[in-house]
Design a protein around this nucleic acid. Structure first.
Lengths: 211, 211
DNA sequence: GCAAGGAGTGAACTGTGGTTCACTTCTTGA
DNA sequence: TCAAGAAGTGAACCACAGTTCACTCCTTGC
């Protein structure tokens, strides 16, 4: 056997793969999922079209991985907040703010992850991720209900509804022009208050403290 | 002049147009916007592909008209509820329930209107329609705030958030299997309570009365 | 009946974008 | 240095719609 795959070789290999993945994410950030044609991604990565296919079996897989990777990172952050210490109301506000801040800062990427038209595969994945996010919110709600901090309610429905509410409020702005800093914090303020009311935070004082 | 366009002629013409439009809506209902290829619509309408293009300049226009028509009808109904008499809390519940009931009853059509991946044109239109719906909800909220029935808040944000919340809760089920009657009413119950809390209905009693 | 002109037809055209694959280039280990 | 095999290349291929247009069919009014 004259050729054996060395550590150096597979590292180079992995690097190329990563290059393509990063390029894909960049293209999505700029041109959306629709704009992420293989040719465009390859050009951005500085490789040939065929090379992309050496590392990913199909465009669908590539796009799916971009979506999954991006969302997983966001989900992990939100999850950390959810699992952190502190009263549920604070955690809820922190989660909403984190999600919102990230979304507003990411430009088109967030829109692509949340709402952009795309293929069936990515769509399914997106539904899963939204459900995941809803579950995270639901767990805060469940905690709040258990401790009596929130009114009694169905955590699953509330979690899902919160995800929808936050997304919708953020997509609106995203689809239009970017907001100024002031507008941003104002929208955020309104949004968190909406969320606090929605879960029925018991003590009105928390509304003030939470910020 | 040997040929003049008669009333009968243009009526036939209009009828063909309507036939195509109805066929398009049916196809969307069954196969979604993605499945509404010109060939499929033409086949359903019982006309040739070229005939579709005699009545609509492009697929985009056809799809856009389907979306607009469908949404306009729904919007009108919600608008009627919004402008009806009665306390804001009741109107809000009625609006949510109407929207939800329609969405749940329409099968894939609602999903297509609210969330399905599609072309840029329909997407823009959809954003407009969602904004319209948000405005309707916002006006109820504004009324509620003005009369003191709801807590103080930014009606625009709350309206948008409500649309998002309702959509998300409904799309989840829609994307999965259809719900049984019991599940439906349970989800609806949770959803309306969420909405009531979210706008900060002052009297908890209203929560009971509203149903 | 028949000429004029609009409606209807569907095969062919076109543009786009994913995918393939014969070929070239590079790396490895003897 | 060189043969083997992996990585990289990109022109060509293909599939899938949307769109066009030369042609046929039908209605109208003389």
């Amino acid at each position: 056997m004259v050729y054996r795959r060395t550590a150096a070789a597979s590292e180079r290999d992995a690097r190329t793969r990563t290059t393509i993945l990063v390029a894909a994410r960049d293209v999505v950030r700029e041109s959306g999922l629709t704009g992420a044609a293989i040719a465009a991604v390859a050009a951005r990565a500085g490789v040939a079209v065929g090379t992309v296919y050496r590392h990913f079996p199909s465009r669908d897989e590539l796009i799916t991985e971009v979506v999954r990777e991006t969302c997983d990172r966001e989900l992990a952050e939100v999850a950390a907040v959810v699992r952190s210490d502190g009263p549920p109301a604070d955690r809820l506000v922190a989660a909403v703010e984190l999600f919102a801040t990230r979304a507003l800062a990411s430009g088109r990427l967030a829109y692509s992850m949340i709402a952009e038209p795309t293929t069936e595969a990515a769509e399914v994945l997106r539904l899963v991720i939204r459900a995941e996010l809803a579950k995270l919110f639901a767990s805060i709600v469940a905690d709040g209900v258990a401790t009596g901090a929130f009114e009694r309610q169905d955590p699953a429905t509330s979690g899902t509804a919160l995800v929808g509410a936050v997304s919708e409020v953020l997509i609106g702005p995203l689809a239009r022009q970017p907001l100024s800093g002031d507008e941003r914090s104002e929208v955020l303020e309104h949004l968190t208050q909406f969320a606090m009311r929605a879960v029925g935070v018991r003590s009105p004082a928390t509304l003030e403290v939470a910020r």
